[in-house]
Every structure is written in C-alpha cells, then in structure tokens.
Design a binder for these strands. Structure first.
Length: 570
DNA sequence: GCCGTTTTCGGCCCGACTGTTTTCAGTCG
C-alpha cells in the first residue's frame, strides 16, 4: 500500500467525520496527517515492517499510528468502512463541487434528502435549493454548474502544459496599469510536475485596477470572483487562475505565502508562534509592528533561516536544514554539460542524427549520446543488427565533422520480461553507453519486476537505468518495485539512475530521487528527446532534480567529458 | 486527534470573497 493510498484513506475519513459533525479539530488532525503522509519521503509500509516509531512523525500520534499499522497490515480501516455505510457515497463527491463544503452538503442531505447526483440535479432544476436557509439563487446556480464539472473532476495540468499560459499571463499582467511586480507563485513556482491551478501575485498602488484588467484577459472563459485584492478566473482550457494584488512593500511576505506549499507555510507559522510572532501575507508581526515583508529573504531571516528555494518548500525537513545551515546547493540547468538519452529517425525520433547534434551544439552541450531503441518485441522499429552498422558509422562521421561536441554511441536497450537483454556482448561491446529501460509487461508481481531490473543493472553493459518507474503522469501508474533494494544494487554496481525530463515522465520523481541520493546513488539527467525541440526538455528534469534536493555533484553529466567517461567506466 | 521550556489540558494559521444576510457563516486557498 502506497503512502498516497494511505493518505487518501485519512482524507476520506476527515471528510466523513466532518459530515457527521465531529469536532472540527479532530477533522483537521486527520487532514494534517493525510497531508504529512502524502508528502512523506519514506514508505510507511516499509516503516511499519521495520518496526519504526510512527509517532515520531509530525501530526501522527498514538491513534493515527495505530490506524496506519492496521491499514498496512489488513489493507483497510474498519472505522472508515463503518462511516462509509452511514452516508450515501455521492455525498463525498459533492464536496468537490465549488461552494459546497461539509456543512452545506449536510444541510442538503438532511433537509432535502439529497443522496444521489441525479437528485441534486433535480433539486437545483426545481429551485428547491434556494429556499433552504443560508442558500439562495446564486448558490443554487453554482451547484448546478458544479455538477456538470463533476464528471471531469481532478484535472491537473502537466507543468509543461501550464507553462505557456503562465508566461502569457505574466506578460499580460506586466502591462496592467500601475502594476509594479508580477510573479507566478503556487505549485508552478515550486516546479511541481503537475499544477492544479495558477497562482499569480502582483503588486500595485491601486489593486482594483489590476484586478479589473486581469478579468479581461482574452482567454478567460469565466470570472469566478473579483474582489478588491483577489480574483479567480477560469480559462477556456479550464485552467483556473488566481490573482492576488498587494502593496509593493508586502510583496515578499505575500510571495512566500502564495508560493506555499501549504505545509511549508503552516510550519513557518508554527515557528512564528513559538517565537511570539505572527505571520500573514502582509508580513511578520511582533505585536502590531511589521518586522519583515519586503522580500522573501527578509521573512526567512527573521526566523534565523537561510533562504529556502521554492522547489523544496514541502515541509520535508527543509526548515530544519535552513536553521542548521544544511540546505542543499541545488543543481541548475547551467551545470549540465551533456545529454545522454536522445532518439533519432533510426528509431522513433523525428530528426536525423546530424540535426539533433546541431541543436545540441546550439544548446552548448559538450557531449551527447545518441541512444536509439533496440529492436525487440515491444519496440518494433528499433535498431536491428543491420541498421546498427550504418548507425555507428554515421556517428563516427559526425564526430569527424564537428570538433566542439563529442557524440557517444549509445542505445536504449529494452529490458525483457525476465531481465535479460535483446542483444549479446558481440553487439553491446561496440557501444560507449547503454541505457536499460522497461517498455512492456508492467503488471508482473513486485518481486518479479524488482528482480527483472536488478538482473539488468548487474549486466556489465548497462550503465544507466532510464525512466525506472515507467509511469506516464495521469495515464499509467508507476511500476510496483522495491525501490530501496534497487537503489542498493545501483549503488553497489556504480550504475546511474536517470532523471528523465519528458514532461509526462519526470521519472524518477522528486521523493525517490531524494531517497536514492541519501543512499549514495548517482544520477544522470536526460532529455529523452525525440525531436530537436525536445532537447530543451532538460529544464524540466532539472526542476525535478531540484525538488529531489540534488546537487551538482550528485549528477554525472555535470562533469566534463573525460571525467564523465572515467566514472562511467569505473 | 495532535502537541508541548508559557506541558498532560486546552489550545489548534490566517485572511479574502461570496452570498446570504443586515452582521456573518461557509468556503477557499
């Protein structure tokens, strides 16, 4: 059972208890626990197996620790099963309708006996909802609208999908009358792999003018709200955008607040309470005196903390690290000197080897590896024995032609179901770098999949494991693997773990990257480009690496060519 | 339900916006 699944159980529990009218703070305790679990780097299942004391974790006390053990051991929580029977299942889904929280859902259920989506639809249509105390025509309309969206709920956008809209909005707002600063905040600024909405912060002397300008953004489908200092719109592609406008002297504290994560900000606020200070988006207050608000650096400084990069503001130990001067010096795009996973029209890429090399030179790469797919059952269009001869010859030719870049002979080798490889040493020995990757049979048992990868890692020819989990964000779940065991073998064998920069892969993810780093595993960050343009995807891999606390020295392709080849062949 | 040099009870982050009211509850982030 994954942490995500366990977190979901507690989150459901919180929702149901809230419907029941249980103590507000108890509900919040479960929600806090769910959030902590969701963000937890270690696997709870492993921790339980190893007899770790769960109550050492924040927001987890005796009660919740016991429940976690129960969940890990039996796969479910009796308390939740019981509660689920008390309420029609549709009520939980009502909570995701904008404007409906536990109290209103409860009222609808108790007064109008609404227990299905259809019934809620009917009541809205017949204008029965507006007659309830505390409800009115506007709310009724909102519920009807929300019901239509219910079917497509839970849409998160890939970072890369949201990026052009973020840039366009920023540019647009910078032209707003009287605007001083504009910054995209929220999960986008933290460079999360997906974003639920865009949070934008601006500063201006007269916020109303900026708000008004914002609601006229050309791609707006709907204005949800527009107050004096904040506004929410939904774009035509259904991406929600929140804007907050503050006075310029409050920009730093507001940026900190709106960048989040929520868990990070809450932790800072607790920190503040301990120091007899109060934090809100307008600043850090000692009594009524505002002592820090202009920049984020000022805010952290007040608490005796070093500046924390947005990518690691997840309350996973960064605040303690900032206090103790132990923050990582995060890797940057400029640190990369090469890219070791590139496809061409020899397999499923779009461009020729030379075109990819030209683009790589343009990006300033000192070396790259061309790594087309091997030919095997799951990848039919790959390099067969006959093609390999031409392929290697062509790379030789390119190397003669350009002296400012080195092109390594590589291949992305399919790892077969039993962990064996489609080619033997007669072929593989001709290559400088071979990546191993799984492309089929994603549903073997955890033991089989783990064994499969370990066998491949132990092959002397495989140097890198590419997109290890095989996930496609929002489409295909990650492989169920014993990652700790695999990381152990990677470290022992001196092989590299790839951070794949494809926006829908970003594999390994931030949490696993950090775990592997702590176990001493070294990385490569690769674009896995299938076109010239995709060579620029490295920036997304860098985002993920930074979220995983990786530093320059953790990553082999930050080294110059000679040093890189040395550690590759060690 | 969690948590703790203002400890084992009594607190629990904080503010904006909307729609309903006529001062505020509910929701959201």
């Amino acid at each position: 059972m994954s942490n995500k699944e366990i977190a979901k159980i507690f989150s459901q529990l919180a929702n149901l208890l809230e419907l029941k009218g249980e103590n507000h703070f108890k509900v919040r305790a479960y929600r806090n626990a769910a959030r902590v679990i969701d963000a937890l780097p270690e696997s709870l299942e492993e921790m339980v197996k190893n007899g770790k004391d769960l109550t050492k974790l924040p927001a987890i006390g005796e009660q919740i620790a016991q429940k976690i053990e129960q969940i890990v051991k039996t796969g479910k929580l009796p308390k939740l099963e019981r509660l689920k029977k008390e309420f029609p299942p549709a009520l939980l889904s009502f909570l995701s309708i904008e404007g409906l929280g536990a109290n209103r859902v409860k009222t609808l259920y108790e007064k109008l006996h609404v227990d299905t989506v259809a019934k809620l639809q009917k009541m809205a249509k017949e204008h029965k909802i507006r007659s309830l105390k505390g409800f009115g025509p506007k709310l009724e309309e909102k519920i009807a609208k929300g019901l239509k969206l219910l079917k497509q709920e839970g849409i998160r956008f890939l970072y890369e999908e949201a990026e052009p809209f973020a840039n366009e909005l920023k540019e647009y707002l910078q032209k707003a009358p009287g605007v001083i600063k504009v910054e995209i905040a929220g999960s986008f600024r933290r460079r999360k792999e997906t974003v639920g909405d865009l949070d934008i912060l601006a500063s201006a002397k007269e916020p109303e003018i900026v708000i008004d300008y914002f609601t006229k953004f050309p791609k707006t489908a709907e204005v949800i709200s527009a107050g004096e200092t904040r506004s929410t719109i939904v774009l035509q592609n259904s991406l929600q955008v929140d804007l907050r406008v503050v006075k310029d002297e409050h920009f730093g504290s507001a940026l900190h607040y709106f960048t989040g994560s929520k868990a990070h900000v809450l932790e800072i606020r607790k920190f503040a309470i301990d120091m007899n200070l109060k934090v809100n988006e307008y600043g850090v207050f000692k009594g009524s005196h505002n002592i820090a608000s202009k920049t984020e650096e000022d805010v952290y400084k007040v608490f005796g903390l070093n500046y924390i990069e947005p990518e690691i503001r997840e309350n996973r130990g960064e605040i303690e690290a900032a206090r103790d001067g132990k923050l990582p010096n995060l890797v940057t795009l400029n640190d990369l000197q090469g890219d070791l996973h590139i496809h061409t029209n020899y397999s499923d890429g779009l461009a020729s080897i030379e075109k990819m090399v030209l683009k790589a030179r343009e990006l300033g790469h000192k070396y790259i590896a061309i790594t087309d797919h091997s030919n095997s059952l799951s990848i039919v269009k790959g390099l067969d024995r006959e093609k390999i001869v031409r392929y290697l010859k062509e790379i030789d030719k390119i190397n003669e032609k350009y002296d400012d870049i080195t092109v390594l002979k590589g291949m992305e080798l399919d790892i077969l179901e039993d962990g064996s490889l489609p080619y033997g040493s007669d072929i593989l020995i001709q290559f400088d770098i071979v990546l191993g990757a799984v492309h089929s049979k994603f549903k073997l048992s955890k033991e089989q999949e783990t064994e499969r990868l370990i066998k491949a890692i132990k092959s002397p020819y495989i140097k890198v494991i590419s997109h290890i989990s095989g996930r496609l964000i929002g489409k295909r779940a990650p492989l169920d693997l014993d990652y700790q065991e695999i990381f152990k073998v990677l470290k022992e064998e001196g092989k590299f773990l790839e951070i794949n920069s494809q926006p829908s892969r970003l594999d390994v993810n931030d949490i696993l990257a950090r775990e592997a780093k702590e176990m001493g595993v070294k990385f490569v960050i690769n674009s896995d480009a299938h076109s010239q343009m995709q060579l620029e995807y490295l920036k997304y891999g860098i985002n993920q690496a930074r979220r995983g606390w990786l530093e320059k020295d953790d990553i082999a392709n930050t080294k110059g060519l000679n040093e890189f080849l040395q550690i590759l062949n060690r």
